[in-house]
Design a protein around this nucleic acid. Structure first.
Length: 377
DNA sequence: ACTGCCGGGGA
DNA sequence: TCCCCGGCAGT
């Protein structure tokens, strides 16, 4: 019987994303279960990305392959393992039935079409000891050196080894959701309101507004001790989504980040925001020091629109004396942490407008190599 | 390489 | 205070 095996495996995989490690340990009995789940998830994510670029025609082919694989017998297990897995599955299913997140968001459909989003693919950080799960880090973490083979029906077949009977079902269904095709096997179709964190490369989805606010405060704003404090502005950074409880992926695809700059409300200039983003993501999985946690550059950039400035220097007037501090006070990532240097102005300045030959037409500041006062950004 | 501009220093 | 410029960082 294949289906139970699929369920328990799949569930365990999802659980590994949704619960802190300590809790997850309650549900699993073996360390290799953790590893297997992680590995599978990673490769599945990889596969999903590829899949999105595929045509509907290919999907049809794939579904055939998948359906033929559903009957493949599951990996052989000893009777004890099976019993243990049954117990595990029962516990997990019971737990999930009360959990807001039934399925993890395996992919955001447009992600593969956009480089900057792709950079922050979903990778479960189940190895984190911080107690949070998150999607972060580049998606090709699974195998950076070897690109995935071009996808064909054959490659799908190869991908679905008998030890992974779950992937076929899971993926076929996700494909249906992504491409808005009728779903053969319907689960209950209740809608659920979730809240998605819109901080770039985060995408955390929680069931309550309070939860997402707390997430933003603790993870992105670094307000650890003041969990109940709210300045009322977090709602700029999460969005309400409605989704089928049988697939979070569907919900996420419905709010697909058409353009990263549009989708992420704190619309930082992307160049400035992307790099710090990775460091921000890292802080979730690493030991959080006050410095590393509190000052992704995007926070610095945000503060012009919102009061999210966390940097201790945020009350200073723009200008004097900040640059050197970022070098001397901070030891590790020298500048990325605090975007202390004022973002370079986009517009043309006197130098560009008048040229070097008309230097006398420049504003005083430009002549003195100071911040232009005539063409202020 | 070009550009914007911070930080420092001379007059 | 005015003015200049070395040097850093973004494009």
């Amino acid at each position: 019987m294949t289906f139970p095996a699929f369920q328990q495996e799949d569930v365990k995989t999802d659980i590994s994303q949704k619960l802190p490690d300590q809790q997850f340990l309650l549900f699993t009995t073996k360390e290799e279960d953790l590893k297997t789940a992680e590995t599978k998830k990673t490769s599945r994510i990889h596969e999903y990305e590829k899949e999105n670029t595929r045509s509907v025609c290919l999907l049809e082919q794939k579904r055939k392959v998948v359906s033929s694989n559903i009957d493949v017998p599951p990996a052989r297990k000893s009777p004890e393992e099976l019993d243990m897995d049954k117990v595990t599955a029962a516990m997990v299913l019971t737990s999930l039935s009360t959990s807001p997140l039934v399925r993890s968001p395996p992919i955001r459909p447009n992600e593969s079409l956009n480089g900057s989003w792709k950079e922050g693919g979903f990778v479960p950080s189940s190895t984190s000891s911080s107690g949070y799960w998150s999607w972060n880090a580049p998606s090709d973490q699974s195998n950076p050196s070897t690109p995935s083979p071009p996808l064909s029906a054959d490659s799908f077949k190869a991908f679905r080894t008998p030890s992974q009977p779950d992937d076929g079902i899971d993926e076929a269904e996700t494909s249906n959701l992504l491409f808005d095709e009728p779903i053969p096997r319907k689960r209950k179709n209740s809608m659920k309101v979730m809240f998605k964190c819109l901080w770039k490369n985060c995408g955390k989805v929680l069931s309550t507004a309070a939860g997402i606010q707390k997430h933003i405060r603790t993870i992105h704003l670094g307000r650890v001790g003041e969990s109940d404090y709210s300045d009322g502005e977090e709602d700029f950074y999460y969005t309400e989504i409605r989704l089928n409880t049988d697939s979070v992926a569907d919900g996420l695809s419905s709010l697909s980040p058409v353009s990263p700059s549009l989708a992420s409300p704190p619309s930082f200039s992307t160049q400035d925001a992307i790099r710090p983003e990775t460091s921000c993501a890292k802080t979730e999985t690493k030991l959080m020091t006050p410095l590393s946690r509190s000052a992704p550059t995007n926070l610095y950039l945000v503060h012009t629109d919102h009061a999210y400035q966390v940097s201790p220097t945020h009350n200073r007037p723009a200008g004097s004396g900040e640059q050197k501090q970022s070098h001397t006070v901070l030891s590790s990532p020298p500048r990325v942490a605090f975007g202390l240097r004022k973002p370079r102005g986009e517009g043309k300045k006197c130098r560009k407008v008048y040229g070097m030959e008309n230097r006398d037409m420049w504003c005083t500041a430009c002549r003195w190599k100071k911040a232009c006062q005539r063409f202020i950004d």
